[in-house]
Design a protein around this nucleic acid. Structure first.
Length: 500
RNA sequence: UCCCCGAUAGCUCAAUAGGUAGAGCGAGCGGCUGUUAACCGCUAGGUCGUAGGUUCGAGCCCUACUCGGGGAGCCA
Protein backbone atom coordinates (compact mmCIF):
# COMPACT_ATOMS: atom_id res chain seq x y z
CA UNK A 1 0.00 0.00 0.00
CA UNK A 2 1.58 3.29 -1.06
CA UNK A 3 1.12 6.22 1.29
CA UNK A 4 2.80 9.37 2.57
CA UNK A 5 4.37 10.14 5.91
CA UNK A 6 1.70 12.71 6.65
CA UNK A 7 -0.97 9.97 6.58
CA UNK A 8 1.00 7.34 8.46
CA UNK A 9 -1.08 7.46 11.64
CA UNK A 10 -3.97 5.87 9.72
CA UNK A 11 -1.84 2.81 8.97
CA UNK A 12 -0.50 1.75 12.37
CA UNK A 13 0.16 -1.99 12.35
CA UNK A 14 -0.17 -2.25 8.58
CA UNK A 15 2.41 -2.69 5.86
CA UNK A 16 3.00 0.40 3.68
CA UNK A 17 5.48 1.74 1.15
CA UNK A 18 7.01 5.19 1.46
CA UNK A 19 8.98 6.90 -1.29
CA UNK A 20 11.34 9.75 -0.59
CA UNK A 21 14.87 10.80 0.22
CA UNK A 22 17.38 10.06 2.98
CA UNK A 23 17.30 12.99 5.40
CA UNK A 24 19.65 11.54 8.03
CA UNK A 25 20.97 8.11 8.55
CA UNK A 26 22.93 6.35 11.27
CA UNK A 27 23.77 2.80 11.91
CA UNK A 28 25.33 0.73 14.63
CA UNK A 29 26.38 -2.68 13.53
CA UNK A 30 23.23 -4.61 13.01
CA UNK A 31 20.58 -1.91 13.10
CA UNK A 32 20.31 1.13 10.88
CA UNK A 33 18.07 4.19 11.11
CA UNK A 34 17.15 6.13 8.02
CA UNK A 35 15.12 9.26 8.59
CA UNK A 36 13.10 9.43 5.39
CA UNK A 37 11.81 12.70 3.95
CA UNK A 38 8.95 12.48 1.46
CA UNK A 39 7.77 16.07 1.13
CA UNK A 40 4.96 15.61 3.63
CA UNK A 41 7.10 15.00 6.69
CA UNK A 42 9.90 12.99 8.27
CA UNK A 43 9.77 9.39 9.41
CA UNK A 44 12.37 7.21 11.05
CA UNK A 45 12.76 3.88 9.28
CA UNK A 46 14.45 1.05 11.13
CA UNK A 47 16.37 -1.59 9.25
CA UNK A 48 17.52 -4.62 11.18
CA UNK A 49 20.12 -6.95 9.85
CA UNK A 50 18.52 -10.34 9.26
CA UNK A 51 15.12 -8.86 8.40
CA UNK A 52 16.30 -8.05 4.87
CA UNK A 53 19.04 -9.47 2.63
CA UNK A 54 22.55 -8.73 3.91
CA UNK A 55 23.78 -7.08 0.73
CA UNK A 56 20.74 -4.77 0.65
CA UNK A 57 21.39 -3.88 4.30
CA UNK A 58 24.97 -2.95 3.42
CA UNK A 59 23.81 -0.83 0.50
CA UNK A 60 21.23 1.01 2.63
CA UNK A 61 23.80 1.70 5.33
CA UNK A 62 26.09 3.29 2.77
CA UNK A 63 23.44 5.54 1.21
CA UNK A 64 24.45 9.21 1.38
CA UNK A 65 22.21 12.04 2.43
CA UNK A 66 19.46 12.79 -0.12
CA UNK A 67 19.67 9.44 -1.87
CA UNK A 68 16.22 8.59 -3.21
CA UNK A 69 14.56 5.30 -2.33
CA UNK A 70 11.35 3.48 -1.49
CA UNK A 71 10.98 1.62 1.78
CA UNK A 72 8.26 -0.86 2.74
CA UNK A 73 7.51 -2.05 6.21
CA UNK A 74 5.17 -2.19 9.17
CA UNK A 75 4.06 1.10 10.68
CA UNK A 76 4.32 1.30 14.45
CA UNK A 77 3.87 4.01 17.03
CA UNK A 78 7.25 5.27 18.21
CA UNK A 79 7.63 8.55 20.11
CA UNK A 80 11.34 8.69 19.28
CA UNK A 81 10.57 9.10 15.56
CA UNK A 82 10.02 12.67 14.30
CA UNK A 83 6.38 12.14 13.26
CA UNK A 84 5.48 9.80 16.13
CA UNK A 85 5.48 6.71 13.89
CA UNK A 86 8.32 4.64 12.52
CA UNK A 87 8.62 2.07 9.77
CA UNK A 88 10.04 -1.39 10.54
CA UNK A 89 11.54 -2.03 7.12
CA UNK A 90 10.94 -5.32 5.37
CA UNK A 91 11.81 -4.34 1.78
CA UNK A 92 13.66 -1.52 0.04
CA UNK A 93 14.41 -0.32 -3.42
CA UNK A 94 17.09 2.25 -4.06
CA UNK A 95 16.19 4.71 -6.80
CA UNK A 96 19.26 6.96 -6.97
CA UNK A 97 22.16 6.80 -4.54
CA UNK A 98 23.81 10.13 -3.72
CA UNK A 99 27.34 10.98 -2.71
CA UNK A 100 28.79 14.16 -1.28
CA UNK A 101 25.53 16.04 -0.80
CA UNK A 102 26.83 19.52 -0.05
CA UNK A 103 24.40 20.52 2.69
CA UNK A 104 25.36 18.62 5.80
CA UNK A 105 23.37 18.47 9.03
CA UNK A 106 25.54 21.28 10.36
CA UNK A 107 25.45 25.03 10.28
CA UNK A 108 26.14 26.77 7.00
CA UNK A 109 26.63 30.38 6.04
CA UNK A 110 24.13 32.51 4.16
CA UNK A 111 26.19 32.71 1.00
CA UNK A 112 26.72 28.97 0.79
CA UNK A 113 23.05 28.21 1.34
CA UNK A 114 21.93 30.78 -1.24
CA UNK A 115 24.27 29.31 -3.83
CA UNK A 116 22.78 25.93 -3.01
CA UNK A 117 19.22 27.20 -2.80
CA UNK A 118 18.08 24.53 -5.29
CA UNK A 119 19.09 21.88 -2.75
CA UNK A 120 18.55 23.90 0.41
CA UNK A 121 14.80 23.92 -0.33
CA UNK A 122 14.77 20.28 0.83
CA UNK A 123 15.98 21.17 4.33
CA UNK A 124 13.63 21.44 7.28
CA UNK A 125 13.67 25.21 7.73
CA UNK A 126 12.93 26.16 4.12
CA UNK A 127 10.37 23.37 3.99
CA UNK A 128 8.51 24.60 7.09
CA UNK A 129 8.60 28.19 5.84
CA UNK A 130 7.39 27.10 2.42
CA UNK A 131 4.45 25.26 3.94
CA UNK A 132 3.53 28.28 6.03
CA UNK A 133 3.86 30.57 3.01
CA UNK A 134 1.43 28.28 1.22
CA UNK A 135 -1.06 28.57 4.09
CA UNK A 136 -0.63 32.35 4.27
CA UNK A 137 -1.37 32.70 0.56
CA UNK A 138 -4.34 30.37 0.75
CA UNK A 139 -5.69 32.23 3.80
CA UNK A 140 -5.28 35.56 1.99
CA UNK A 141 -7.34 34.36 -0.97
CA UNK A 142 -9.87 32.70 1.34
CA UNK A 143 -10.37 35.88 3.36
CA UNK A 144 -11.07 38.09 0.36
CA UNK A 145 -13.09 35.50 -1.53
CA UNK A 146 -15.24 34.87 1.54
CA UNK A 147 -15.81 38.57 2.15
CA UNK A 148 -17.29 39.63 -1.15
CA UNK A 149 -14.11 40.68 -2.95
CA UNK A 150 -13.59 40.06 -6.66
CA UNK A 151 -10.12 39.14 -7.87
CA UNK A 152 -8.81 41.45 -10.58
CA UNK A 153 -5.47 40.67 -12.16
CA UNK A 154 -3.67 43.93 -12.81
CA UNK A 155 -0.96 44.19 -15.46
CA UNK A 156 2.72 43.63 -14.80
CA UNK A 157 3.86 45.75 -17.74
CA UNK A 158 2.94 49.33 -16.92
CA UNK A 159 3.53 52.58 -18.75
CA UNK A 160 3.76 54.96 -15.83
CA UNK A 161 4.92 55.11 -12.27
CA UNK A 162 2.40 54.19 -9.61
CA UNK A 163 3.87 56.16 -6.79
CA UNK A 164 6.20 59.11 -6.79
CA UNK A 165 9.76 58.82 -7.94
CA UNK A 166 10.31 55.24 -6.91
CA UNK A 167 12.72 53.37 -9.02
CA UNK A 168 11.13 50.99 -11.47
CA UNK A 169 12.68 48.27 -13.55
CA UNK A 170 12.43 49.28 -17.15
CA UNK A 171 12.07 46.79 -19.97
CA UNK A 172 12.20 47.10 -23.71
CA UNK A 173 8.67 46.74 -25.01
CA UNK A 174 9.02 46.45 -28.80
CA UNK A 175 11.42 49.35 -28.78
CA UNK A 176 9.46 51.46 -26.30
CA UNK A 177 10.29 51.72 -22.61
CA UNK A 178 7.87 50.03 -20.22
CA UNK A 179 8.15 49.23 -16.54
CA UNK A 180 7.56 46.27 -14.31
CA UNK A 181 4.65 46.99 -12.03
CA UNK A 182 5.34 47.97 -8.45
CA UNK A 183 1.65 48.15 -7.52
CA UNK A 184 -1.71 47.36 -9.08
CA UNK A 185 -3.39 50.10 -7.12
CA UNK A 186 -4.32 52.61 -9.80
CA UNK A 187 -5.86 49.85 -11.90
CA UNK A 188 -7.60 48.45 -8.84
CA UNK A 189 -9.23 51.78 -8.16
CA UNK A 190 -10.85 51.53 -11.60
CA UNK A 191 -12.00 47.99 -10.86
CA UNK A 192 -13.36 48.96 -7.43
CA UNK A 193 -15.74 51.35 -9.20
CA UNK A 194 -17.04 48.34 -11.09
CA UNK A 195 -17.10 45.54 -8.50
CA UNK A 196 -17.11 47.50 -5.26
CA UNK A 197 -14.62 45.31 -3.42
CA UNK A 198 -11.62 43.99 -5.35
CA UNK A 199 -8.14 42.67 -4.80
CA UNK A 200 -5.10 41.79 -6.84
CA UNK A 201 -2.39 39.36 -5.89
CA UNK A 202 0.88 38.80 -7.63
CA UNK A 203 4.56 39.55 -7.91
CA UNK A 204 5.70 43.14 -7.75
CA UNK A 205 9.01 44.73 -8.63
CA UNK A 206 11.04 47.48 -7.00
CA UNK A 207 14.41 48.67 -8.22
CA UNK A 208 15.19 50.20 -4.84
CA UNK A 209 18.80 49.81 -3.85
CA UNK A 210 17.94 48.44 -0.46
CA UNK A 211 20.25 45.87 1.02
CA UNK A 212 18.49 44.90 4.21
CA UNK A 213 16.75 41.92 5.73
CA UNK A 214 13.40 43.49 4.85
CA UNK A 215 13.93 43.99 1.10
CA UNK A 216 13.67 42.02 -2.11
CA UNK A 217 13.52 43.43 -5.64
CA UNK A 218 10.79 40.92 -6.54
CA UNK A 219 8.18 40.08 -3.94
CA UNK A 220 4.53 39.13 -3.67
CA UNK A 221 1.92 41.58 -2.59
CA UNK A 222 -1.84 41.40 -2.10
CA UNK A 223 -3.78 44.63 -2.53
CA UNK A 224 -7.46 45.03 -1.64
CA UNK A 225 -9.32 48.15 -2.79
CA UNK A 226 -12.80 49.06 -1.56
CA UNK A 227 -15.39 51.60 -2.72
CA UNK A 228 -17.33 53.50 -0.06
CA UNK A 229 -14.86 53.02 2.78
CA UNK A 230 -13.21 55.42 5.20
CA UNK A 231 -10.01 55.19 7.26
CA UNK A 232 -11.58 53.48 10.31
CA UNK A 233 -13.18 51.00 7.91
CA UNK A 234 -9.82 50.24 6.30
CA UNK A 235 -8.14 49.70 9.66
CA UNK A 236 -10.89 47.32 10.67
CA UNK A 237 -10.54 45.42 7.40
CA UNK A 238 -6.77 45.21 7.80
CA UNK A 239 -6.83 43.94 11.39
CA UNK A 240 -9.51 41.37 10.64
CA UNK A 241 -7.56 40.26 7.59
CA UNK A 242 -4.18 39.91 9.32
CA UNK A 243 -5.76 38.17 12.30
CA UNK A 244 -7.52 35.64 10.07
CA UNK A 245 -4.26 34.83 8.28
CA UNK A 246 -2.42 34.29 11.55
CA UNK A 247 -5.25 32.14 12.87
CA UNK A 248 -5.12 29.90 9.83
CA UNK A 249 -1.38 29.37 10.22
CA UNK A 250 -1.85 28.53 13.90
CA UNK A 251 -4.52 26.03 12.91
CA UNK A 252 -2.75 24.41 9.95
CA UNK A 253 0.96 24.70 10.69
CA UNK A 254 1.55 24.35 14.39
CA UNK A 255 4.27 21.68 14.01
CA UNK A 256 6.08 23.84 11.45
CA UNK A 257 5.87 26.87 13.77
CA UNK A 258 7.31 24.77 16.57
CA UNK A 259 10.14 23.46 14.41
CA UNK A 260 10.99 27.00 13.36
CA UNK A 261 10.95 28.28 16.92
CA UNK A 262 8.25 30.83 16.11
CA UNK A 263 6.75 32.83 18.95
CA UNK A 264 3.43 31.02 19.20
CA UNK A 265 2.34 32.87 22.34
CA UNK A 266 2.79 36.16 20.48
CA UNK A 267 0.83 34.86 17.49
CA UNK A 268 -2.01 33.72 19.69
CA UNK A 269 -2.46 37.28 20.89
CA UNK A 270 -3.02 38.53 17.34
CA UNK A 271 -6.65 39.48 17.21
CA UNK A 272 -8.58 42.72 16.73
CA UNK A 273 -8.36 45.42 17.79
CA UNK A 274 -4.73 46.34 17.06
CA UNK A 275 -3.10 49.41 18.60
CA UNK A 276 -3.79 52.73 16.87
CA UNK A 277 -1.38 55.66 16.88
CA UNK A 278 -1.28 58.75 14.75
CA UNK A 279 1.98 59.71 13.11
CA UNK A 280 2.13 62.65 15.51
CA UNK A 281 1.75 60.26 18.48
CA UNK A 282 4.54 58.13 17.05
CA UNK A 283 6.79 61.16 16.55
CA UNK A 284 6.14 62.21 20.16
CA UNK A 285 7.01 58.73 21.39
CA UNK A 286 10.23 58.64 19.38
CA UNK A 287 11.49 61.93 20.79
CA UNK A 288 10.29 61.26 24.33
CA UNK A 289 12.34 60.31 27.36
CA UNK A 290 10.47 57.02 27.28
CA UNK A 291 12.26 56.09 24.06
CA UNK A 292 15.62 57.26 25.38
CA UNK A 293 15.10 55.03 28.39
CA UNK A 294 13.78 52.16 26.29
CA UNK A 295 16.80 52.21 24.01
CA UNK A 296 19.20 52.56 26.95
CA UNK A 297 17.59 49.61 28.70
CA UNK A 298 17.83 47.59 25.54
CA UNK A 299 21.49 48.45 25.17
CA UNK A 300 22.14 47.46 28.77
CA UNK A 301 20.36 44.18 28.17
CA UNK A 302 22.48 43.49 25.08
CA UNK A 303 25.63 44.39 26.96
CA UNK A 304 24.90 42.11 29.86
CA UNK A 305 24.08 39.31 27.43
CA UNK A 306 27.39 40.00 25.75
CA UNK A 307 29.26 39.91 29.05
CA UNK A 308 27.62 36.60 29.92
CA UNK A 309 28.60 35.12 26.56
CA UNK A 310 32.15 36.36 26.88
CA UNK A 311 32.45 34.88 30.34
CA UNK A 312 31.16 31.57 29.05
CA UNK A 313 33.73 31.63 26.26
CA UNK A 314 36.53 32.53 28.66
CA UNK A 315 35.52 29.71 31.00
CA UNK A 316 35.67 27.22 28.17
CA UNK A 317 39.10 28.48 27.20
CA UNK A 318 40.51 28.20 30.72
CA UNK A 319 39.04 24.72 31.03
CA UNK A 320 40.70 23.75 27.75
CA UNK A 321 44.03 25.21 28.82
CA UNK A 322 43.89 23.57 32.22
CA UNK A 323 44.07 20.26 30.39
CA UNK A 324 42.92 16.91 31.62
CA UNK A 325 39.83 17.02 29.42
CA UNK A 326 38.63 13.93 27.63
CA UNK A 327 38.58 14.15 23.85
CA UNK A 328 34.78 14.23 23.75
CA UNK A 329 34.74 17.14 26.18
CA UNK A 330 37.14 19.08 23.98
CA UNK A 331 35.01 18.36 20.92
CA UNK A 332 31.91 19.51 22.71
CA UNK A 333 33.63 22.70 23.81
CA UNK A 334 34.81 23.41 20.28
CA UNK A 335 31.26 23.11 19.03
CA UNK A 336 29.91 25.29 21.83
CA UNK A 337 32.53 27.94 21.16
CA UNK A 338 31.46 28.23 17.54
CA UNK A 339 27.82 28.63 18.56
CA UNK A 340 28.61 31.20 21.22
CA UNK A 341 30.76 33.23 18.84
CA UNK A 342 27.94 33.37 16.30
CA UNK A 343 25.59 34.63 19.02
CA UNK A 344 28.20 37.16 20.04
CA UNK A 345 28.43 38.47 16.46
CA UNK A 346 24.66 38.99 16.36
CA UNK A 347 24.76 40.83 19.68
CA UNK A 348 27.63 43.04 18.55
CA UNK A 349 25.61 44.12 15.53
CA UNK A 350 22.68 45.00 17.80
CA UNK A 351 24.97 46.88 20.17
CA UNK A 352 26.46 48.76 17.26
CA UNK A 353 23.07 49.68 15.78
CA UNK A 354 21.31 50.63 19.01
CA UNK A 355 22.93 54.07 19.55
CA UNK A 356 22.54 54.92 15.87
CA UNK A 357 18.87 54.06 15.97
CA UNK A 358 18.41 55.88 19.28
CA UNK A 359 19.96 58.97 17.76
CA UNK A 360 17.82 58.77 14.63
CA UNK A 361 14.76 58.55 16.88
CA UNK A 362 15.76 61.46 19.10
CA UNK A 363 16.48 63.66 16.10
CA UNK A 364 13.15 62.80 14.54
CA UNK A 365 11.42 65.86 13.10
CA UNK A 366 7.71 66.10 12.36
CA UNK A 367 7.35 65.93 8.58
CA UNK A 368 9.86 63.15 7.92
CA UNK A 369 8.69 59.69 7.00
CA UNK A 370 9.17 57.07 9.68
CA UNK A 371 12.40 55.18 9.04
CA UNK A 372 12.92 51.44 9.34
CA UNK A 373 14.63 51.82 12.70
CA UNK A 374 11.86 54.13 13.97
CA UNK A 375 9.26 51.54 13.05
CA UNK A 376 11.30 48.88 14.80
CA UNK A 377 11.35 50.90 18.01
CA UNK A 378 7.61 51.59 17.94
CA UNK A 379 6.74 47.99 17.22
CA UNK A 380 9.12 46.68 19.88
CA UNK A 381 7.18 48.71 22.43
CA UNK A 382 3.95 46.88 21.60
CA UNK A 383 2.94 43.24 21.90
CA UNK A 384 0.38 43.50 19.10
CA UNK A 385 0.60 45.06 15.65
CA UNK A 386 0.37 48.85 15.60
CA UNK A 387 -1.41 51.08 13.10
CA UNK A 388 0.27 54.41 12.50
CA UNK A 389 -2.07 56.82 10.73
CA UNK A 390 -2.18 60.39 9.38
CA UNK A 391 1.32 60.93 8.02
CA UNK A 392 2.49 64.35 6.78
CA UNK A 393 1.24 65.01 3.29
CA UNK A 394 4.68 65.89 1.91
CA UNK A 395 6.11 62.53 2.92
CA UNK A 396 3.43 60.55 1.09
CA UNK A 397 2.21 59.75 -2.40
CA UNK A 398 0.01 62.14 -4.37
CA UNK A 399 -3.04 59.89 -4.45
CA UNK A 400 -3.57 59.77 -0.68
CA UNK A 401 -6.56 61.73 0.58
CA UNK A 402 -5.79 64.98 2.31
CA UNK A 403 -7.39 65.06 5.75
CA UNK A 404 -10.03 67.75 5.56
CA UNK A 405 -9.74 68.55 9.29
CA UNK A 406 -5.95 68.84 9.15
CA UNK A 407 -4.65 69.41 5.62
CA UNK A 408 -1.08 68.86 6.76
CA UNK A 409 -1.73 65.12 6.95
CA UNK A 410 -3.25 62.44 4.77
CA UNK A 411 -5.68 59.64 5.63
CA UNK A 412 -3.20 56.83 5.37
CA UNK A 413 -1.84 54.08 7.58
CA UNK A 414 1.02 51.67 7.97
CA UNK A 415 0.71 48.47 9.96
CA UNK A 416 3.80 47.66 11.99
CA UNK A 417 4.00 44.00 12.92
CA UNK A 418 4.75 43.28 16.55
CA UNK A 419 8.10 42.57 18.19
CA UNK A 420 10.24 44.83 16.09
CA UNK A 421 9.48 43.29 12.77
CA UNK A 422 8.31 46.54 11.20
CA UNK A 423 6.02 47.44 8.35
CA UNK A 424 3.94 44.74 6.67
CA UNK A 425 1.10 46.90 5.32
CA UNK A 426 0.90 50.35 3.79
CA UNK A 427 -2.44 51.81 2.73
CA UNK A 428 -4.63 54.86 2.48
CA UNK A 429 -7.94 56.41 1.65
CA UNK A 430 -7.52 57.73 -1.91
CA UNK A 431 -8.11 61.33 -2.85
CA UNK A 432 -11.54 61.30 -4.48
CA UNK A 433 -11.92 65.02 -5.16
CA UNK A 434 -10.74 66.03 -8.63
CA UNK A 435 -9.49 69.48 -7.59
CA UNK A 436 -7.50 68.20 -4.61
CA UNK A 437 -5.99 65.47 -6.75
CA UNK A 438 -5.01 67.84 -9.56
CA UNK A 439 -3.38 70.10 -7.01
CA UNK A 440 -1.33 67.24 -5.60
CA UNK A 441 -0.25 66.10 -9.08
CA UNK A 442 0.85 69.65 -9.75
CA UNK A 443 2.72 69.88 -6.43
CA UNK A 444 4.65 66.74 -7.27
CA UNK A 445 5.46 68.10 -10.71
CA UNK A 446 3.79 65.26 -12.57
CA UNK A 447 2.15 65.63 -15.93
CA UNK A 448 -1.67 65.45 -15.48
CA UNK A 449 -2.00 64.06 -19.00
CA UNK A 450 -0.27 60.86 -17.88
CA UNK A 451 -3.02 60.36 -15.36
CA UNK A 452 -6.01 61.12 -17.57
CA UNK A 453 -7.76 57.84 -17.06
CA UNK A 454 -7.05 57.96 -13.34
CA UNK A 455 -8.54 61.45 -13.13
CA UNK A 456 -11.61 60.25 -15.02
CA UNK A 457 -12.54 58.17 -11.97
CA UNK A 458 -12.98 61.45 -10.08
CA UNK A 459 -15.24 62.82 -12.80
CA UNK A 460 -17.63 59.94 -13.22
CA UNK A 461 -19.27 59.00 -9.96
CA UNK A 462 -16.34 59.51 -7.63
CA UNK A 463 -16.79 57.91 -4.21
CA UNK A 464 -14.71 57.65 -1.04
CA UNK A 465 -12.50 54.60 -1.43
CA UNK A 466 -9.24 53.15 -0.29
CA UNK A 467 -7.10 50.10 0.10
CA UNK A 468 -3.76 48.73 1.17
CA UNK A 469 -0.94 46.42 0.18
CA UNK A 470 0.41 43.58 2.29
CA UNK A 471 3.86 42.11 1.63
CA UNK A 472 3.68 38.33 1.66
CA UNK A 473 7.34 37.63 2.43
CA UNK A 474 7.41 40.16 5.26
CA UNK A 475 4.25 38.64 6.71
CA UNK A 476 5.69 35.14 6.47
CA UNK A 477 8.95 36.29 8.06
CA UNK A 478 7.08 37.92 10.91
CA UNK A 479 4.90 34.85 11.55
CA UNK A 480 7.75 32.36 11.30
CA UNK A 481 10.23 34.46 13.27
CA UNK A 482 12.63 34.33 10.32
CA UNK A 483 14.98 37.25 10.43
CA UNK A 484 15.48 37.73 6.69
CA UNK A 485 12.68 37.77 4.12
CA UNK A 486 14.92 36.14 1.51
CA UNK A 487 14.20 32.86 3.32
CA UNK A 488 10.47 33.38 2.77
CA UNK A 489 10.38 32.93 -1.01
CA UNK A 490 11.72 29.92 -2.88
CA UNK A 491 14.14 31.77 -5.17
CA UNK A 492 14.77 35.27 -3.83
CA UNK A 493 15.85 38.22 -5.94
CA UNK A 494 17.96 40.63 -3.98
CA UNK A 495 19.43 43.96 -4.90
CA UNK A 496 22.86 42.74 -5.88
CA UNK A 497 22.60 39.04 -5.54
CA UNK A 498 20.57 36.63 -7.62
CA UNK A 499 22.06 33.20 -7.02
CA UNK A 500 19.70 30.83 -8.74
C1' U B 1 24.45 56.91 -3.20
C1' C B 2 26.59 56.63 1.86
C1' C B 3 28.42 54.12 6.59
C1' C B 4 30.21 49.62 9.35
C1' C B 5 31.97 44.39 9.31
C1' G B 6 34.03 40.15 6.99
C1' A B 7 36.95 36.65 3.38
C1' U B 8 41.85 30.69 6.46
C1' A B 9 40.33 22.73 4.72
C1' G B 10 34.16 20.61 1.11
C1' C B 11 31.19 23.38 5.44
C1' U B 12 31.31 26.38 10.18
C1' C B 13 35.08 28.70 12.58
C1' A B 14 40.11 29.20 15.64
C1' A B 15 45.35 30.85 15.55
C1' U B 16 47.25 34.50 22.08
C1' A B 17 52.44 40.61 21.06
C1' G B 18 54.24 39.61 13.05
C1' G B 19 58.00 33.60 14.03
C1' U B 20 56.89 26.06 10.71
C1' A B 21 48.44 26.75 9.89
C1' G B 22 44.38 24.09 14.07
C1' A B 23 39.36 22.13 15.76
C1' G B 24 34.49 20.33 14.90
C1' C B 25 31.39 18.65 11.14
C1' G B 26 31.58 16.35 6.28
C1' A B 27 34.44 12.48 3.16
C1' G B 28 37.13 7.39 3.25
C1' C B 29 38.20 2.81 6.25
C1' G B 30 37.14 -0.08 10.72
C1' G B 31 33.95 -1.04 15.40
C1' C B 32 29.14 -1.05 18.03
C1' U B 33 21.28 -4.06 18.37
C1' G B 34 17.64 1.66 19.56
C1' U B 35 20.08 5.91 17.54
C1' U B 36 17.93 11.32 17.68
C1' A B 37 23.06 17.18 14.44
C1' A B 38 24.61 9.25 17.89
C1' C B 39 29.27 7.39 19.67
C1' C B 40 34.71 5.25 19.51
C1' G B 41 39.51 4.50 16.58
C1' C B 42 42.39 5.57 12.17
C1' U B 43 43.23 8.21 7.21
C1' A B 44 43.10 11.97 3.51
C1' G B 45 42.31 17.13 2.92
C1' G B 46 45.17 24.32 2.92
C1' U B 47 49.74 28.59 -2.90
C1' C B 48 45.25 31.80 4.34
C1' G B 49 39.85 36.18 -1.64
C1' U B 50 43.20 38.82 -5.72
C1' A B 51 47.42 42.19 -6.81
C1' G B 52 51.11 45.11 -4.85
C1' G B 53 53.93 47.03 -0.50
C1' U B 54 56.56 47.13 4.66
C1' U B 55 59.81 43.34 7.18
C1' C B 56 65.29 38.93 8.21
C1' G B 57 60.29 36.87 8.41
C1' A B 58 53.11 38.40 6.97
C1' G B 59 47.02 34.54 7.89
C1' C B 60 48.14 38.81 11.15
C1' C B 61 50.60 45.52 9.41
C1' C B 62 49.70 49.20 4.86
C1' U B 63 47.28 50.32 -0.21
C1' A B 64 44.02 49.05 -4.15
C1' C B 65 40.55 45.75 -6.12
C1' U B 66 36.86 41.61 -6.10
C1' C B 67 33.10 39.07 -3.56
C1' G B 68 29.84 38.61 0.66
C1' G B 69 27.11 40.35 5.19
C1' G B 70 24.59 44.25 8.07
C1' G B 71 22.56 49.16 8.24
C1' A B 72 20.96 54.40 6.44
C1' G B 73 18.01 56.60 2.66
C1' C B 74 13.45 54.43 0.18
C1' C B 75 9.80 50.96 0.84
C1' A B 76 5.71 45.79 1.24
Amino acid sequence: MKTTIHQLSAFAGQEVTLSGWVYHSRHSGKVAFIVLRDGTGLCQCVIEKGKIQDDLFDQLVRLGQESSLSLSGIVRVEPRSPGGHELAVTAASIVCPTQDYPITPKEHGVEFLMKNRHLHLRSQRPWCIGRIRHTVIDAIRRFFNDNGFTLVDTPIFTAAAGEGEQTLFSVDYFGKPMFLSQTGQLYLECAAMSFGKVYCFGPTFRAEKSKTRRHLTEFWMVEPEVAYIDLPGLLELAENFVSSVVKRVLKDNRPELETLGADIAMLEKIEPPFHRLTYTDAADILTSSRTVQFMAEQLEQFKSQKAALEKQLADIETADKAGGLKQWQKDKNARLQIELRAELDELNIKIENNPKHAQLASEFKWGKDLGGSDETIISLMHDKPVFVTHYPREAKAFYMKTDRDNPKVVQNFDLLASQGFGEIIGGSVREDDLQYLLKRIEEEGYNPQSYEWYLDLRKHGSVPHGGFGLGVERTVAWITNERHIRQCIAFPRMMDNVCI
